[in-house]
Design a protein around this nucleic acid. Structure first.
Lengths: 341, 341
DNA sequence: CCATTTCTGATGTACGTAAATCAAAAATTT
DNA sequence: AAATTTTTGATTTACGTACATCAGAAATGG
């Protein structure tokens, strides 16, 4: 049988109450006694039964998710994953509130963050727009000892406790290698399509992509980045214009959202132009395009994993427990038409 | 507050004992009463507090993992993940026993399975060798109402409850597309290296690989499969021989284990021969080879995920609960040198 | 050495569910 | 209608931990 608090008490020759004081770091235990108990805990290998502890505590964790509005599929999926988490709320002892903020709107994001100051909140998760004002607002929350987790896109130099998202430099590098290898040794221009250079994930993807292209695929030239603001219609017109003006484009890397527009533009020039295309985020649109050959690879981050990881981290941080970094690493998924889930 | 058994009792106008009888499917409840209680459960949206239930039950799940011996890194990693799970055993109320059986040895596997008949066991997970005798032994366990999960490699036409592993046909197809695209439109021979055609995962990978190659890359010809029996030394000599005898080989797909030998053979012919190589299983050897350019892509299944999924499924099956198929899907990871974890 | 502060023990209740017991009520059979 | 069987209610204990209270012991100060 696994040891319980009673066993520690017996082993250390103290009472149950004293063991409890040591375990929960309550005051009123002499140093020598505390050490005696801790030694006993180690000796018999006691591990707290978390289920029983939570049951006894009856603690609930009020959590807030701040996510951007906007009608692109990825953010839609993210919101729906958070919503899903609210359904599991009672079983996980969380009480999740979703706050929506216009995308790329720094003042609105800051206001949403500041509205949480002084509230009884066990943690905040936000999709960060990488601006100094946002960073300052996050630091204010952190200095009030509220756990803060950035989701999907990180915040430079802030004191946030954790980032729940993929390594975007690695993602950009991976996209570059896929595109470079798929294009064989061919010669030509590449278009990069981003949402906004205001968010760090997009900047980092571009950085990784450019680095590998420069190092290993010198025959492929990068054109200036197109900023589609994750908006399908804007994206469509930007891509159509670029494709008609430059006949040397042989590859496209779309590192943001709004791929619905990209796919429409590609289908419009189809079979004449032969293009190799790598995009981010698996949605119903990119999935269909991957299957029909309009695009060649999709890089993806699993929004569900990110949300669940963020919740685990906020709870652990709120309890002052360590986060198992390895367990919380978010993987970059690569999908070709053959390994779609 | 979330509803409890007391709330159901009050809502249904019955006693706590009756609610308990309905919830745990104990006898002694009239149909009308049972329906009244079930209706109340639905009405107020009661969800059992699993933590409290497990606490009260004090139930432990005796589980058995049957894994092949052999010194290849993948099986080593798998065993170590199972071992890891035994360390979390007390906290998860499992009692895991590991049984080792020689690889590809059908009688030994059957003997190990039959030894479990009549024992008090909550579940069996095995890396299956796909033979009729094994299937029959699994069916015997299933007919004794013992949950059986195949791990990594599945068993054709058996009554096993679940398969915890990747879709190997999709894996083979993905490998083919990567290799085909990486080779551009080049012309040449491909070598496929397997462990043994006795295991279904290897057969399926080959099947998926061959299908895509035939459909989409007609310029690449498949040579007869080399069976390395997942043994590094045997693999090394097979590959060396093939490479020296056939100068047209431009790509290799290694769909089994024993890649240490493959890598040694590749390094021996290095910079003269230019080969595009896709292998399975991320180990310290394949990781290093990916980084130094000896191989081009690694397909991987996360053994840790597979083991944890198998445990969840066995417990759920033992409790007569449904398995959430989507949650238990094991993903195929694709690693290039840029997105290594 | 007494007073005061600091520590420790003993005990009880609570969390939500499981499981058992025994008595009482209701339904069914004879 | 009595006898029997089946259902239901009431109550209790248990799981392992958290947390509170109060009394008593030990250490510390003067």
């Amino acid at each position: 049988m696994r040891p319980t608090v009673h066993d520690i008490a017996a082993a250390a020759g103290v009472s149950l109450a004293t063991v409890d004081r040591v375990l929960n770091q309550r005051p009123g235990v002499r140093l020598v006694t505390r050490e005696k108990v801790e030694e006993a805990i180690r000796q018999i290998g006691y591990i707290r039964d978390v289920a029983a502890a939570n049951l006894a505590k009856g603690r609930i964790y009020p959590l807030v998710f701040i996510v951007p509005t906007g009608d692109n599929s990825f953010m839609h999926g993210l919101r729906s994953e958070v919503h899903h988490a609210t359904l599991r709320a009672s079983i996980e002892r969380t009480d999740i509130r979703i706050v929506e903020v216009p995308a790329f709107d720094v003042p609105a994001l800051v206001a949403a963050l500041d509205a949480l100051l002084g509230r009884n909140i066990a943690g905040v998760a936000l999709v960060a727009t990488d601006a100094p004002e946002v960073r300052a607002a996050v630091d204010r929350l952190v200095s009030e000892r509220i756990p803060v987790v950035t989701l999907v896109s990180d915040l430079t130099d802030s004191t946030r406790h954790h980032y729940a998202g993929i390594d975007n430099i690695a993602a950009g590098r991976t996209a570059a290698r896929l595109l470079g290898r798929f294009l064989g040794g061919r010669d030509g221009d590449l278009t990069v399509l981003a949402g906004s250079m205001l968010v760090r994930d997009h900047r980092e993807r571009l950085q990784g992509f450019s680095a590998v292209m420069a190092e290993e695929f010198p025959k492929l030239r990068l054109l200036p980045v197109l900023e589609g603001r994750d908006d399908p219609e804007r994206t469509r017109s930007l891509v159509s214009k670029a494709l008609s003006e430059n006949r040397n484009i042989i590859g496209i890397y779309s590192l943001g959202a709004g791929n619905r527009g990209l796919i429409a533009a590609l289908k419009a020039v189809r079979p004449e132009r032969e293009l190799t295309v790598v995009v981010h985020e698996l949605t119903q649109h990119t999935r269909a395009a991957l299957l029909d050959g309009t695009i060649d690879a999709v890089l993806n981050q699993d929004a569900g994993h990110e949300v669940r990881s963020a919740i685990r981290v906020m709870k652990a941080t709120a309890d002052g427990q360590a986060v198992i970094a390895d367990q919380e690493r978010i993987r970059l998924d690569i999908f070709l038409k053959d390994n779609l889930p």
